[in-house]
Design a protein around this nucleic acid. Structure first.
Lengths: 125, 125
DNA sequence: CGGCATCCCCCGTGATACTG
DNA sequence: CAGTATCACGGGGGATGCCG
């Protein structure tokens, strides 16, 4: 739809580059997948869920995504402190993409589904 | 769908992390979007399409993805040399995900479509 | 034209310790 | 428990030059 504003594919790729900026960073996607599906997790839960990440990185990536409007930070004014994270509506909008990525990842180990690896190296004249 | 094999979300996220490895790198996605839709581009065409990337990075990312079986390298034994790149079948399988990402990127500037930004900061008890 | 090698620098990333 | 601060390191990534 809206072919009139479809512009060239190059522009589309160009536009995506902007959006990609928000997902750059070694842990962004990983975290996002943890929050995938509207889950609300505490800081410590995320830490446990992603053992390989350092506290510093977790905070950093979380903060960035918060600033980008992808994740929401919910502070509970209690003691001990309790902070939860979840996707914003815009972040939720990423779910289809995240899901597609999931499909792809799954397909990788389920040959025949997408019948990859069917091509052979061919060198043109 | 397929709730039975949905296992825990954690496992899913875990699996994705593996697949994500293939897409890590500042330029992978950008390049992929350039090849999106089955396009076959020459090395120099990719260079022009992505001015911000250095030749070194372009080669590097391309080679990695080639090794990962995401893109195919077609060498034309001519002079002057001519090398083309395109997605492998598995790479093509990424298109749905890429497209979803495209949708997301577009939605960012088209509020009302996914009605993002409808939430308000809420601090639990 | 396509691609590799080299040099070099910056920042992303990690480990540790400290605060509220 | 959540988050900050500081230090230190490695390699990601840029610029340049040479080769097939």
């Amino acid at each position: 739809m809206s072919k009139e504003e479809a512009l060239t594919p190059s522009s589309a790729a160009d536009r995506v580059e902007q959006a990609l900026k928000f997902l750059e960073g070694r842990w962004k996607l990983v975290i996002l997948f943890r929050l995938f599906g509207g889950k609300v997790l505490r800081f410590s839960e995320l830490e446990k869920a992603i053992p390989a990440i350092s506290q510093k990185m977790l905070i950093q990536q979380l903060r960035q995504m918060e600033a980008d409007g992808i994740v929401r930070r919910i502070v509970h004014h209690q003691v001990p402190p309790k902070v939860e994270y979840c996707l914003t509506d815009w972040g939720q909008a990423l779910c289809p993409a995240l899901d597609a990525l999931l499909q792809w990842a799954a397909a990788r180990e389920r040959p025949g589904e997408t019948d990859a690896r069917a091509q052979s190296a061919r060198s043109a004249s």
